[in-house]
Design a protein around this nucleic acid. Sequence first.
DNA 1: CCTTGACCTCAAGCACACTTGAAGTAGCAG
DNA 2: CTGCTACTTCAAGTGTGCTTGAGGTCAAGG
Lengths: 157, 157
Amino acid sequence: MLAIMKEIPDRLTIGELSARSGMAASALRYYEELGLISSTRTAGGQRRYARATLRRVAFVRAAQQVGLSLDEAREAMARLPADRAPNAREWSRVARRWEARVEERIAELQRLKERLGGCVGCGCLSLQKCRLYNPGDQVAERGPGPRHLIEDVPLSS
Amino acid sequence: MLAIMKEIPDRLTIGELSARSGMAASALRYYEELGLISSTRTAGGQRRYARATLRRVAFVRAAQQVGLSLDEAREAMARLPADRAPNAREWSRVARRWEARVEERIAELQRLKERLGGCVGCGCLSLQKCRLYNPGDQVAERGPGPRHLIEDVPLSS
DNA sequence: CCTTGACCTCAAGCACACTTGAAGTAGCAG
DNA sequence: CTGCTACTTCAAGTGTGCTTGAGGTCAAGG
């Protein structure tokens, strides 16, 4: 189990990287074109990726989940070594920026969740009167309904 | 303050809706084309929106944040009345589906956050040995670094 | 009434993130 | 050495979510 693992080769073909990362080969070529990942070439011109590339691809996927563009992901990764795993110092520099972003996004969603569930959750079914979600009572609309759950964010800045 | 509020008219022009929703007028026309919102027309053919449309636009924005496409947003809103605020029953039906989605997304991000902060946060700087993030010790790569923070999700399904 | 700014339609364009297709080459198993 | 699959490049196409521009009309203040 230790000796004969001809899987996990040192340099991955694009097909192997694709299989292991879950990204289409075309997407990986695209990423390389954008400078998100890099490869060496064989004598015949085929790409070979360092295994660390797997981590970079995963990083990109994660970045996209947080709402970063590929360009922003590239910027973030510029601080990480391309060909080896990052050390603690390198990693924490990058991770800290990320955490802020992730937390921001989590907070955003939690606010949304509150607005969604609030009135229904608070059990007040005569929704017009709910001070919690009708602050200042400045709702001028007829008809029942949890007006302030989703509505009219001023955006006055 | 109650009498002379000629703001908050009953039917909004596209410009007013744009200003109050923060969406460009072109985007609102696009939404209307897709059936996300609707309008009546003046004799001259200009759009006039019910104020409830403001809520629908906000709903769309929120939906996008959660990762829904405009098409999915339209589907979700199909269960809400187009021209008035939803009542509690109508609202809770829709909100419940949403909450699941939002929570799912929050959970996703929190998992990501843990993977990001984990090793750095746990204070273990000789990262090779960290059992927490190096489970089973099956890492075959040279060099230091928090390998399992971001790497090689098998995706074997 | 007249001007002016907000509105109208329709077609085209754009940015992002890829995918697809054509035509050809590399590399490995037998 | 053959044959087959995985690879190569380059150009063009796709889907989503809009924006822009041309050419024209509406509606409200002066």
